[in-house]
């Protein structure tokens, strides 16, 4: 299929909060259900809400016993270390999940990654200011090639349910109800 959305995601190398090296597309996206958010460790703006809402969505998906991956990408890789990311994850008590990585990439790789994931602003002044970074959650299912993004600040339960609807494997209602 030529319009496989995930092919637009650069397969950049990232480090997670456990100090492990991962390839973004290969390890997190290909063939999987994934949700991606953007944070930075010193953020006192949108990030706490983003992470708390991701935690709630993570809980809902966990309860459904679904296979999924969460990725929180720092928008200040020039200042956030692996240690900082681990501390950040620990503050929100989300450091223990094998399927939620808090990651940093090289500063040069960040912009292509953000743009591919729809986390950008066409106004360069806003886009260049990490304090005004995107508060979107980008999510999809590479198996069904269905992707969407929604404001992280929305009602968390509505977000979780929307993620379930859009990333479900069985499209037809009857198939879904039987699965």
């Amino acid at each position: 299929m030529s319009n496989q959305i995930s092919l637009q995601f650069p397969d950049v190398t990232v480090q997670n909060h456990r100090g492990e090296t991962r390839k973004f597309r290969t390890d997190y996206v290909t063939g999987r259900r994934v949700l991606i958010g953007f944070i930075y460790c010193q953020c006192d703006g949108i990030c706490p809400t983003t992470t708390k809402h991701m935690a709630r969505i993570h809980q809902v998906l966990r309860e459904r016993k679904l296979d999924f991956q969460f990725v929180s990408i720092t928008v200040t890789p020039h200042q956030d270390t692996v240690r900082d990311l681990h501390d950040y994850a620990e503050i929100y008590e989300q450091h223990r999940w094998k399927n939620w990585d808090f990651v940093r990439c090289s500063p040069e790789d960040l912009k292509p990654l953000r743009y591919a994931l729809g986390a950008y602003d066409p106004n360069p002044a806003i886009d260049g200011d990490y304090r005004q970074h995107s508060g979107l959650l980008t999510f999809g299912n590479d198996r069904t090639n269905r992707w969407s993004a929604l404001p992280a600040g929305m009602n968390a339960d509505e977000l979780a349910f929307t993620v379930l609807r859009i990333t479900r494997d069985a499209a037809k209602l009857k198939d879904y109800l039987q699965s």
Binding site: G118, Q132, P151, G153, N155
Partner: peptide, 16 residues
């Protein structure tokens, strides 16, 4: 506009 999304009177949309 709010962090890459849209708000009307400060709210995100809820269908409910």
């Amino acid at each position: 506009r709010s962090n890459g999304a849209w708000v009307i009177n400060g709210d995100f949309y809820s269908p409910f």
